[in-house]
Design a protein around this nucleic acid. Structure first.
Lengths: 141, 141
DNA sequence: ATATTTGCAAATAATTTGCAGTCGA
DNA sequence: TCGACTGCAAATTATTTGCAAATAT
């Protein structure tokens, strides 16, 4: 997605496409990691020296309210963001701390006890060890 | 589970069954809500006037490390605890904020992309509106 | 008596808020 | 110009840490 389409993406959701907002959305869409506020700020302040964390917080809340990003809370004390709002699961490796996306057939899940509930969002979080860490017992973060 | 079996439950997991620890575990097992630190503290300090939040934090971390409780992070900025460590899902109503447990056939879930990964914990969080809130459009928190 | 548990207060960390300055149509 | 956007600093909230006092074996 280029700058123009990001801009329209925001406009379509009633968000004025300011420079900072476009950059933050661009970052979220390009980077496949699931950054937290600090990572977004530290990375983008290189391009936008005047950027403040407040703006990052404001912008992410705005995006979240508009449904443009998903908040990932796979671990306590960590709020992470994902611009891929399609249904998919997240896996966090307890060793290397990396977060992986995975596909899941959510439709097939049989749920008992939520009859007549309106489910708006489904989050699937798994934790464990990723294949890399299992194999080379690697120690590089 | 009575006091004695709670005590053995702790002992079996190499946790010395102090008074505060038994009370906290008892609270978690009895209360079906999924309390956060503050709720646990506020409730138990009535029985144990000398209780401090530090102890609640210490104890819950201890329980968590031993696998006796599960940390629920269904919403950012909220750490909640669940003494039911069997596999089940959590649903949070966005209106009344209540957290419901539900049963789910986790085995049947088809996952693509985690081949050769070792999955240690599976968490399923749904959000939306519960049947009560849909029906009486109730406003009592 | 000796090790563990507890509790206070201070430290740290993440996030929110108030408000003033800045930018763009 | 006007309203929206931004950024600093202060405030708030959750959690952790250091250490001394209390407790238990």
């Amino acid at each position: 997605m280029d700058k123009n389409s990001i801009s329209s993406h925001l406009t379509e959701n009633n968000i004025k496409p300011s420079y900072a907002r476009i950059k933050i959305m661009e970052y979220l869409l390009h980077k496949k990691n699931h950054p937290n506020v600090d990572e977004i700020y530290t990375e983008l302040v290189k391009d936008i020296p005047t950027l403040s964390k407040t703006t990052v917080y404001n912008t992410l809340n705005l995006f979240n309210d508009a449904g443009l990003v998903k908040v990932i809370t796979i671990e306590e004390n960590e709020v992470r963001f994902d611009a891929d709002t399609s249904e998919h699961g997240h896996f966090k490796c307890e060793k290397c701390k990396k977060i992986y996306d995975f596909n899941i057939e959510i439709e097939g899940i049989k749920v008992i006890g939520l009859e007549n509930f309106k489910i708006r969002q489904k989050d699937i979080f798994f934790k464990g060890l990723c294949a890399k860490c299992i194999n080379h017992i690697n120690s590089d973060n």
